Amino acid sequence: MESEAYRQASRAPLLQGVMWTMAIVPLVFVLMRLYVRVVMKRVFGWDDFIIIVATGCLIAYAAVCHVAATIGLGRHLTVVLEENPNHVIDVALLCDIGEALAIMACTLGKTSFAVTLLRIVVHRWMIIVLWFVIVTMNLVNVLAALFIFVQCKDPRHLWNSAIPSECWPADVFTHFSLFVGAYSGAQDFVLALLPWTLVWNLQMKKKEKTGIAFAMSLGVFAGAASIVKTTYLVALSEKADFTWELAPLLYWAAVEDGLAITAAAISTLKPLLARVFPGSSINNNYNMISYSTAPNRKVFDNSQGETRTDIGHSSIHERGSQTAILAPLSPKRDETINLTTEVSVTYNRPS
């Protein structure tokens, strides 16, 4: 006989609170990103489209888990069975749908940031690393999302055990999920370290370089959340009390997703911050996010958009430059990113 405390125990309020917090906060930052990109810069790239889809998946994930929590997710299985056995089937189905949405939100959020980095890196090895991350990350995560529903010949058995079906051994999907979780966390740290390598060669004040690199490396917190989430992945094979055991896994997945999307959005907000705080040192930093003004040409906006620097992956040079931002990339080529400053002098002739 369960105690009253056991019957009343519920992780549902915490689950719902974390879910909606980690959905709304990224949504706010993505909306600010879109304001910068569409209204201020008048551009819209693939990374912007990808992050919108990622945010949509995250909001849908929060909604699905919210509904599941209202009918039994986060409470002990025996209690839910006593109240309404059909709710157990509904919770299991909603959890499977939610897990797939969480995987796609996480993958697309990181992919958006990687695509953004692709537009600003100049070293070939960085381009190779980023494409490797994008391809492998999407491959393993799409497989993980598919495997949720193909573990059994009849997928309905996954949420209704009364329907007979042949299924994989329970630990197969758990072990693959542990690999995906660990790999996802490793990719977070790779994407967080690349901006430091890129920015640290800029010839600007160390404080400014640190600020830019830190703003573009916030994905490291998503990596930390991924490590914590991975510790809960064993709950995937927990059938005895899955309505209770799955709750921490689901809300830590939301934390990872939300931090990944927020980190990808923050990296583009410098122009907005410069407008909100016009007298701050933010105006002296360089916006590393490129925008196009002509085919096959990338232009970097630094400061308020009055000074522009052309950049290409093979040859980079600006005539009339006075101050170099980057040192040469190769001793065999004069590959530099340069800053050109136009000065207008007005004077009155003495009468």
Rank of each mutant, 00 (worst) to 15 (best):
A263R: 06
A260Q: 04
A222T: 04
P271D: 03
F189R: 08
T340M: 10
A100H: 05
L194M: 10
V28H: 08
T243G: 08
M19W: 07
A60S: 09
D188S: 06
V25D: 00
R297T: 06
V220G: 10
G279T: 00
V80I: 14
D96W: 15
F29D: 01
L14Q: 03
Y251E: 05
T346D: 12
G185C: 08
T268F: 14
A68R: 01
L14S: 05
T340I: 13
L15D: 02
C65T: 14
K205R: 13
S330T: 07
A263N: 03
P155V: 00
T262V: 09
R124V: 08
W131N: 07
D154I: 11
D301G: 10
R275E: 00
M288T: 12
S177C: 13
V135Q: 09
A92R: 15
A12F: 00
R349V: 13
P350L: 15
S226P: 10
S267M: 15
N296A: 02
V276Q: 08
L81F: 01
L130D: 02
L108Y: 01
L27H: 03
D47R: 06
L143K: 03
I127Y: 11
I311F: 14
E238D: 15
L272A: 06
S321W: 10
F44T: 08
V36G: 04
G320D: 06
V180W: 01
Y61W: 01
L117K: 02
T293E: 15
G320I: 10
M40W: 09
T70F: 05
K229G: 03
Q187R: 05
D154M: 10
E238R: 04
R297H: 11
K41S: 02
H317E: 07
T55M: 08
W20M: 04
T341H: 09
D188T: 00
T346V: 13
G98L: 13
L143G: 03
A145M: 00
G211R: 12
I289L: 09
L269E: 03
I148V: 08
V172R: 12
V30L: 03
R319D: 12
P169F: 07
S344T: 14
L259C: 09
S3R: 05
A274W: 06
W196I: 11
